[in-house]
Amino acid sequence: MSIWALLVIVGILLIVLHIPPGMIWAERKVAARIQGRWGPTRVGPFGLLQPLADAVKLLTKEEVIPRGAERPLYYMGPLLAFVPGALALAVVPFGHDMRVGDTVIQLQIADLHVGVLFVLALTSLAVYGLAFGGWSSDSKYPLLGGLRSSAQMVSYEVALGLAVVAVIMSAGTVSIREMVLAQQELLFGFLPAWNVFFQPVAALIFLVAAFAENNRLPFDMPEAEAELVGGYHTEYSGMKFGMFFLGEYVAMTVMSAVMVSLFFGGWGLPGLTDPHDTSVGNALVSAAVFLVKVAALLFFYIWVRWTLPRFRYDQLMRLGWKVLIPLALANVVVTGLFGVL
């Protein structure tokens, strides 16, 4: 492994670990805006140091562990909620290649030839954190939350996977890197050739299913405060609760990054980035474009959370099984027909 690959890994890790604090701040600020409040203003300028204060609070808080908790699984829950999601970022390209001297550096940790399947496999493991955490707490609300999470995430994974199948079919590859490269041209001279224009239905299904996979409102059934206190993490406190929190934001970042790569041209923006240029400047601009796109999707997550009410559990299941999955299947068939014609 070259020193450059190591630098890329460290760089991506640093970026990813800085997104959750930013998200905590943004979530508070945007929520406040939507509700006509100020949000945090006292800790640092614009309350920017609020996440730091939150982290200090979580780290120094007393840990309360229920007496009947199944310790090994109770400890594993927060880890499993965080680690697989973070690993999935390894196959997402953060920017265009850059050439330094004679070496070409990919701003991507690993270009696996199973690409997007790897992401699906790892994000599908996040459910264990919620399920184990919920079960091992020895309390009825977490148990219900864990149950809901396992049913919900398995259900929406199907729709998510089928949406991705349609994209794979029209792109002709499973490598995320190749998919992004294929989206760098222009359509009719003005429209970026992003998959969202070829696969609008798949993009919509992916978006909805991503919300459900990440347990975000309007699909945050596993932790519905009004019904289940805090759902699967009711009995967690201190940094273990913080890990669940972190895991949720990292999972959202992963989903946004994958969605940007699959549907919104990845690091490319016609006019700003040049797919044939491998200079360092172009690579840095492309990385910035990528991060801005991810940030836009993350903002969308927050926006939706504070605007839409929560679904009822049966409505969620009906939407997943009776609307999204048939729609995704039909989309696959239509994509196949276009491919044959």
Binding site: L117, L120, A121, S124, L125, A131, S150, V154
Partner: peptide, 14 residues
């Protein structure tokens, strides 16, 4: 991982 660990085992767990 995707099918066995991610889907079938989750059903077992459920």
């Amino acid at each position: 991982v995707l099918l066995y660990a991610g889907a079938i085992m989750v059903l077992f767990l459920f």
